[in-house]
Amino acid sequence: MKALFTDIRAAVVATLVFAVVLCGLYPVAVWGVSQIAFKRKADGSLIVDKDGTVRGSSLLGQVFAGEKYFHSRPSAAGAFGYDGASSGGSNLGPTSQKLNDAIKDRIAAYRTTEGLAATAAVPADAVTASGSGLDPHISVKNAELQAARVAKARSLSVEKVKELIAASTTKPDLGILGDAGVNVLELNLALDAAK
């Protein structure tokens, strides 16, 4: 019985001590160092315009629908996509009728918007929802297919738009890790700044 009491005391005390060290000191220490060393990143990599308004985070995608903008991937986050408080994917499986119909509609819309042939293959990322619903990137191929439409809508040369695409492209880390992607929010902001 005494041994049991000793163990109960140890269990309760350990939980409380750990709560202080692991849940108090540890995150606060990480916070303290990162606020000094990586302030912008620790605060969400926010993009702030001249008058101090937050326009987004360079890590998070936003919805774009107008012809003057590059379009992000479809998104299943929230009712209208890219809901920052409701991240997630569609979770629809390979034999889902709903997913099949959605992809069919998106392919037709993409071909119309970008002026592609009725049989042209469409980049997979342009017609599928990402895992987070906040994917900031599109594939380079997807961006290049949208370049002509954006250039026309903005009366810019396609070369100029392609330059901006290249400037907003994230290369694989260390040259080999991960895939290249074009940051849509940064690219669209660069376009707005270029006009």
């Binding site: 042209a120 469409v122 997979a124 599928t128 990402s130 594939s139």
Partner: peptide, 15 residues
């Protein structure tokens, strides 16, 4: 009409 070379991107991140 999804490009076959891209694989299954539903639920995956570009990066």
């Amino acid at each position: 009409g999804v490009a076959a070379a891209d694989g299954n991107m539903e639920g995956k991140e570009v990066r």
